[in-house]
């Protein structure tokens, strides 16, 4: 079974915000809610890097762990979704999420938070596939149409990859082998767990080796 994941290749992201716009358009996301956003690190400094961030559909999702009404669920494809009919808008998930994915529409009175909204991996929600109800509450169900999330498919530089974890990891591996750099996967370890392999003594930094010997 596929495990749907996102990869953002920081070597390729040009901060065009095409993914953000595509997501907002495809899912008709209201003003003030951004399911996806582009973050630039060390902006203005040579070597700055941009990454596109949204819900990473974590393997061990912290939002699921803290939700007091258990509105989250994981589909067999590994997509973390939530039921807006159960959500009470408490905001615990937004504090727990390391990626700042949960969004709250600010349309309530007296600062009242509405139902949480987040990236659905273009997989809709608990409502019937492709129904009007599903579109209004969760957006398009592209996965049920045999398509991948619009943010990744619209990415002009293909910095943002979406799909089965093994397939997109192979794509990135292919790229890294061709260009010889940029193997870092931002947020991958946080979302899907770190690799079990430990660095061998030969690959450890020299300062660490010196510190250990002294």
């Amino acid at each position: 079974m596929a495990r749907m994941k996102f990869i953002c290749d920081a070597e390729r992201c040009i901060n065009c915000n095409g993914c953000v716009t595509a997501c907002k358009n495809e899912n008709e996301v209201p003003w003030g809610v951004n399911r996806r956003r582009v973050v630039t690190m060390n902006e203005g400094v040579p070597g700055e890097k941009s990454i596109s961030v949204a819900c990473m559909h974590c393997s061990d999702a912290p939002c699921m762990a803290v939700c007091p009404v258990s509105c989250f669920y994981r589909t067999p494809e590994g997509v973390v979704l939530h039921d807006k009919d159960v959500c009470i808008g408490c905001g615990y998930c937004s504090y727990a999420c390391p990626f700042g994915a949960p969004q709250f529409p600010a349309n309530g009175e007296f600062g009242l938070r509405g139902k949480m909204d987040k990236c659905t991996f273009c997989a809709g929600g608990p409502a019937p596939n492709g129904s009007e109800e599903q579109f209004k509450e969760y957006g398009r169900d592209r996965l049920a149409e045999g398509k991948l999330p619009i943010c990744a498919e619209m990415c002009s530089t293909k910095a943002l990859l979406a799909g089965d974890g093994e397939v997109i990891a192979d794509i990135l591996r292919d790229r890294v082998l061709h260009r010889g750099s940029g193997a870092e996967l931002w947020g991958w370890g946080t979302a899907y767990g770190k690799a079990e392999t430990k660095p061998t003594p030969a690959t450890q930094p020299a300062s660490t080796t010196q510190g250990a010997s002294s």
Partner: peptide, 8 residues
């Protein structure tokens, strides 16, 4: 889906 992912 995998074929489509390879389009990337």
């Amino acid at each position: 889906i995998d074929r489509r992912a390879q389009d990337q």
